[in-house]
């Protein structure tokens, strides 16, 4: 890995797939990067864009949303809605001035414990390459004041 400074990454994971995959990764004694804080949710379709933007506003370095594979959403199409929202939000991040690569959508099944660990490590590596979020609290943006 590149530079080893503390990162903060939030993973919004669906209880029916990615959250269970993370659980499985733990049961399999697979280690993945501790920078990732996992938030379990009933369906990735319930993740509101405002919540993801708020995470970035608070200075989080990266966010990923992990939902079910195509056709396996327990609420039919929540994962597809989430994927589309993430796609749109990446465009929004670009317009705001943040790298869109800081946001990603993954699709997994509950049996993919080792894949979850791999994806987390790949994502952390990506964020290390991008560097810390420019909106982290305490970073001096050198802005004009009132």
């Amino acid at each position: 890995m590149a530079k080893q400074y503390p990162l903060k990454i939030i993973a919004f994971t669906c209880y029916n797939c990615a959250y269970a995959a993370a659980d499985l990764a733990g049961s399999m004694r697979l280690s993945y990067h501790p920078a990732v804080s996992i938030v379990g949710i009933p369906c990735t379709g319930a993740v509101e864009p405002a919540v993801i933007l708020n995470a970035f506003e608070q200075g989080i370095d990266g966010v990923f949303v992990a939902g079910c594979l195509d056709g396996e959403c327990h609420y039919k199409t929540g994962n597809l809605h989430a994927r589309e929202r993430v796609r749109q939000l990446r465009g929004d991040l670009e317009r705001i001035g943040l790298e869109p690569e800081r946001l990603e959508m993954f699709q997994l099944s509950a049996a993919m414990g080792s894949r979850f660990a791999e994806l987390v490590n790949e994502f952390v590596e990506r964020i290390y390459t991008l560097g810390p979020s420019p909106v982290r609290p305490g970073l001096d943006c050198g802005g004009r004041k009132k």
Binding site: F56, E57, D92, I96, L98, C141, G143
Partner: peptide, 21 residues
């Protein structure tokens, strides 16, 4: 409300990055 919160977050991020208070 959701769109308002999204816009507020986006503006805050943009302003932090561009140094606008």
């Amino acid at each position: 409300v959701q769109q308002g919160e999204e816009l507020a977050s986006a503006l805050r991020i943009h302003c932090k990055m561009h140094g606008d208070g």
